[in-house]
Amino acid sequence: MKTAKAKKITVKDIIKKYGGDKTAMIAILQDVQEEFRYLPKAALSSISKQMEVPLTRIYEIATFYNAFSLKQRGKNLIEVCAGTACHVQGAARLMDRMERDLAIKCGETTKDKMFSLEEVRCLGCCSLAPVVRISGNIHPNLTQDEVPKILKNY
């Protein structure tokens, strides 16, 4: 498979970028995720072999930190901020609305692979609460009413 071959080269490149430094494991995984939008199983095994770090260690890191996903994400990642300011301004109602409109639960991806819905703990845009970040764009002062319109733009 062509894509698989391309993937392997990338993982190697990423490891090379950090000079194989084992303490850079988190950064390496971040780069891999940036490349594939998630952490493919094959990539983790390949890192383990090339860097001579037990897969158990890598799997522990990959499942410990929030930013990593072992599941393939959709084209657009929706992150509903659940920081305190957003919470008191009704973030939970936004999440409910997203779940209803996309017909998925938080942590899932839509069937058409267009959207993945996740919760994020504070984007630090508290003055604009409640906020939702979709594919890197922050939507400030969002009301549940505006959700369908915004989703349509992606």
């Binding site: 037990p54 799997y59 499942t63």
Partner: peptide, 16 residues
């Protein structure tokens, strides 16, 4: 075997 996840979802087992 190793640890995975965190908080109440922490587990012991082989990768994946």
């Amino acid at each position: 075997i190793g640890l995975s996840g965190r908080g109440k979802n922490k587990k012991v087992g082989a990768p994946f």
